[in-house]
Design a protein around this nucleic acid. Structure first.
Length: 587
RNA sequence: GUCCUCGUAGCAUAAUAGGAGAAUGCAGUCGCCUCCUAAGCGACAGAUUGGAGGUUCAAAUCCUCUCGGGGACGCCA
């Protein structure tokens, strides 16, 4: 149970004893830590409602809390704030009871089945810097939800079925027209190897896209190739599909390498193409509801609803070329996910600019009855990572920066900063890899999810402040202390009441954990977790600098301090795991 | 043009139902290693919360207007 919830009950009962029924969030962390630890502003609300003096009411209420031994001080300040300070013995035993083992599942009483759709890389394009955010946020939210006891399935949802594939295929046809895939008379087996390397593949799409934009004939060719691909069973062009399979295979093996390096793991590697068989069913459902119309040769669904301030563009199920785009595949994917998994919620971690698209899709999904009103489709938008010029981060020559290149740059920077001379070069390399990873992930998490942020490598890899390296260093210090204690045979013992303000501050940070976790989960934001990690470790570093832990003369106190920092270490491990940040043994 | 989103110290962010000196980190200035990793800790300084009205005992937060950044708006994804 969270400390705020417990205090909430105390305040609620005190008001009740005075004859006032109050509800909701009655207690918050104090805005004035110099005065108290927690505060309640409830008297203002009650006083206003009943036309009484808030100071008098507060004074009456705190009388009911006078004999509560969990609290050392309860007093009224200013216009009627109720200030609360915990009893030190209560505090340490509270931590002993609730945080000796870190188990987050107990904070979530409404466990759900969730599908989280994140990543969404396009198989025709290499992973670029823009793919970093959805990977970090999605993986973090997935792990957070899972730690809270939900059943959550992460799906990468590859972009593998739209016109980008038609562009690539027609570009290959142009360059290598004699490939067996383009021989519609061919009836034998196709080779199990890809005619292009991943490097070539990464170059094909930008070239083809650029060319087709300036050449309507080539664009038409690409649309045609898309149509053939998508209708693989009806045409004598199975070679297109076979070629496509090879392209996807090549791309996916490359994607896996980069995601692996980031310690990001998808449960499902499905793509837009996987729902192809459900598209007729989707059309049937929408048709039964009389939702389908024709407009300029395209098959569409109008999504405007009464009271709309904006005129929504329609959802285009089929273009006049009879191809399907991501609106159709996203809808068919919802259908398949419900059929196969029956989740309570589906989360979409996607670029904030996709909001309109998902608004449209969700409307169709609910209105058609395909998704029951009780289920939640959730749009989790994010801003982009920009360069210092405010535009999406680019390479020095202005091109799109590959994600792998960004990782290399950050790793080199992290390597330079390792000053510990006792570490060998090969270990240094491993540490740099982890520190770089932490730098990027922490920097992403600490930025507001919805706004854009600037890639600033010096800031991200800084040793001080709200950065990955700072948190890692603190944890490495804790690990080192625990290791030394182990070697010296020092065991942890019962948690004693804090004997210094440094110790007290660490304890006051620890008890915030449940509220931070719940809030992060509700807001679907890693920011609160990253922020909390900073304050927790800052309080630990403060303690570390001011109190000798292993040299503490009082044996019981030493054992207590050891337990306290072990708990901080355990919390660090858990939260860093949620952020998919790995911890080096030393730095 | 319509809609979405964001404007908080030089920069980056916070403020969990409207509440007490608007918090924190970088960067700046100044201190701290005979001692568990100084990749650390402490202190100082820095803000008409874009602007103008309004509601309230109380506004960064709510309402109206206004200025500015970013974004979306039918056959790309």
């Amino acid at each position: 149970m969270s400390i705020l919830v417990e205090l909430n009950e105390k305040i609620r009962n005190a008001f009740l004893e005075c004859g006032y029924e109050v509800d909701g969030k009655l207690v918050t962390l104090s805005d004035r830590p110099d005065l108290s630890q927690f505060q309640s502003n409830t008297a203002f609300i009650v006083a206003k409602k009943n036309g009484i003096n808030p100071v008098k009411l507060s004074e009456e209420v705190i009388k009911k809390l006078e004999n509560d031994t969990d609290l050392s001080k309860v007093f009224v300040a200013g216009p009627g704030f109720i200030n609360v300070v915990l009893d030190n013995n209560f505090l340490s035993s509270y931590i002993e009871r609730n945080f000796s083992k870190i188990d987050l599942t107990k904070y979530n009483c409404d466990k759900k089945k969730i599908i989280i759709d994140y990543g969404g890389p396009n198989v025709a394009k290499p992973l670029h810097v823009g793919h970093l955010r959805p990977a970090i946020i999605g993986e973090g939210l997935k792990r957070l939800s899972r730690e809270l006891g939900n059943e959550i399935i992460g799906d990468i949802h590859l972009g593998d079925w739209g016109r980008q594939m038609g562009l690539v295929i027609s570009e290959i046809k142009l360059r290598q027209p004699n490939l067996i895939y383009f021989d519609d008379q061919y009836s034998g087996e196709y080779p199990d190897c890809c005619p292009v390397t991943v490097e070539e593949l990464n170059e094909l799409y930008p070239t083809a896209n650029c060319a087709a934009k300036n050449d309507e004939a080539r664009m038409e060719e690409a649309r045609n190739a898309t149509y053939i691909l998508q209708n693989k069973d009806h045409k004598n062009h199975r070679g297109y599909y076979e070629l496509w399979k090879q392209l996807v295979k090549t791309s996916v093996s490359d994607l896996k390498k980069t995601y692996e390096k980031l310690d990001i793991h998808f449960d499902l590697w499905r793509g837009e193409s996987d729902c192809n068989n459900s598209i007729p069913k989707l059309l049937e459902i929408l048709s039964e509801k009389n939702m389908i119309e024709t407009s300029d040769g395209a098959t569409v669904v109008y999504v405007n609803e009464e009271g709309d301030k904006v005129d929504y563009p329609p959802v285009i199920l089929k273009t006049k070329n009879n191809t399907v785009g991501y609106q159709t595949t996203d809808l068919a994917t919802i259908y398949e996910r419900l059929e196969e998994f029956d989740p309570d919620e589906i989360w979409y971690v996607v670029d904030a600019r996709q909001k309109l698209h998902f608004d449209q899709i969700f409307r169709v999904a609910y209105r058609s009855g395909m998704v029951d009103e009780s289920k939640k489709l959730v749009f989790i938008g994010f801003g982009t990572m920009n360069g210092t010029d405010g535009k999406p981060f680019k390479t020095r020559d202005g091109g799109v920066m590959r994600l792998s290149e960004l990782l290399d740059i950050t790793e080199n920077k992290a390597f330079e900063k390792i000053t510990n001379t006792s570490i060998e070069k090969s270990e240094k390399q491993e540490i740099a890899c982890l520190v770089a990873d932490a730098s990027l992930k922490y920097a992403d998490a600490i930025s507001n999810r919805l706004t854009d942020y600037v890639f600033d490598i010096d800031k991200f890899t800084d040793n001080n402040g709200k950065t990955g390296p700072y948190i890692l260093y603190s944890q490495v210090r804790i690990q080192s202390l625990l290791e030394k204690a182990n070697v010296q045979g020092i065991k942890e013992g019962n948690l004693l009441a804090p004997s210094s303000k440094e110790e007290l501050n660490v304890m006051l940070e620890i008890i915030k954990l449940p509220d931070v976790i719940i809030s992060a989960y509700n807001n679907k934001s890693l920011l609160e977790i990253a922020d909390f990690l900073f304050y927790l470790n800052s309080s630990f570093n403060n303690l570390y600098n001011n109190c000798r832990i292993l040299d503490e003369k009082n044996i019981e106190r030493r054992a207590s301090l050891l337990k306290l920092i072990r708990i901080v270490g355990d919390i660090n491990k858990k939260l860093l795991y949620i952020m998919s940040v790995r911890i080096p043994k030393r730095m």
